[in-house]
């Protein structure tokens, strides 16, 4: 083996500022933890009592159900709208633009109320020949029950936002990719599905994670049409027993737990779609921050 040259012997740059910051933060954190544990107002036993109680878990189930289903509607709808928006067919593009304008431009609460009170406008919904005979007819209130109104309100609103996210992702893919696929004889649909969308995913996923986490909490707006989920459940409990703070902590803990699970899932999906693209870790790690930066090979 050839003899290695002796390693460079230099005193590394010191970072005293970092240690000062760590000390200050450690003291502040200790004060916070101390006060949280010693202040009786938090009523930790009450938190423990309600954390896994029936009504809370029931609300949690609805929060999960609403979030998952509305995001499915939002993502599928968003992809369709984005494709329409980018279509060379001007009618499709214009219709998608109109949809996005309406659904982003009006308050979600108003949209939820609209779907809930649709029966006031159209008492019956029917399928049939336009301006001709009806084939089947439904009572609007039966077809669009409270749960369906929640899904329509949250999902269709989300689709408008997702459409813009997907459109941005598609636009981020180099035009050369479309040309190369076209030159190989791939159709526009094949190019979109196999070449453009998989690459757009890298740009689409982080904001979609944001939207999903935001939906966890936005779904609590369904209270305006009398439906219930996690936050509504704890509100119902503390409005009778007045344990406001502990019950809000119960809700907060569940939201944090769900958000953590989603963040892990997001990281997993991001790695899946990062294949072939040299992506390093998202940022400096906490330990690396304190340790001296080692020269990486």
């Amino acid at each position: 083996m050839p003899e290695r040259p002796p390693p460079l012997n230099a005193v590394p740059v010191r970072h005293p500022g970092r240690w000062v910051a760590v000390a200050v933060l450690a003291v502040l954190a200790a004060m916070l933890v101390h006060s949280v544990l010693t202040n009786d107002g938090f009523r930790w036993p009450v938190v423990g009592q309600y954390l896994f109680s029936g009504p809370v878990l029931n609300g949690l189930k609805n929060t999960l159900l609403l979030t998952v289903l509305s995001m499915v509607i939002g993502i599928v709808g968003g992809i369709l709208l984005a494709i329409m928006r980018l279509s060379p067919n001007p009618i499709l593009s214009w219709v998608a633009a109109l949809y996005i304008w309406v659904f982003r431009g009006t308050p979600l609460i108003a949209q939820l109320l609209f779907w809930n009170f649709l029966s006031a406008l159209y008492p019956r919904l029917s399928l049939g020949v336009p301006f001709g005979p009806e084939l089947v007819s439904f009572d609007t209130n039966v077809l669009i029950n409270q749960f369906a109104a929640c899904l329509l309100g949250l999902g269709l609103n989300e689709a408008a936002y997702m459409a813009e996210i997907v459109r941005g992702g598609i636009a981020s893919v180099d035009h050369g990719q479309t040309e190369a696929a076209g030159a190989l004889g791939m159709s526009r649909a094949q190019t979109l599905r196999r070449i453009v969308l998989p690459q757009a995913m890298r740009v689409i996923i982080p904001p979609t994670g944001n939207e999903t986490i935001s939906m966890l909490k936005t779904s609590s707006l369904v209270v305006v049409i009398g439906y219930f989920e996690l936050l509504t459940s704890v509100q119902r409990i503390y409005s009778t027993n007045f344990q406001t703070i502990p019950l809000l902590i119960v809700a907060a803990l569940w939201y944090l737990a769900l958000t953590s699970v989603l963040s892990v899932g997001q990281g997993f999906i991001e790695r899946r779609y990062g294949r072939g693209l040299a992506t390093g870790p998202p940022g400096p790690s906490l330990l690396g921050f304190l340790r001296r930066e080692k020269a990486t090979t």
């Binding site: 990719q177 696929a181 030159a183 690459q199």
Partner: peptide, 15 residues
């Protein structure tokens, strides 16, 4: 399909 094209910037599919 019957005409092959090679680009200046390669345009390979990175994924």
């Amino acid at each position: 399909r019957d005409i092959g094209m090679v680009f200046q910037r390669f345009n390979l599919f990175p994924h």
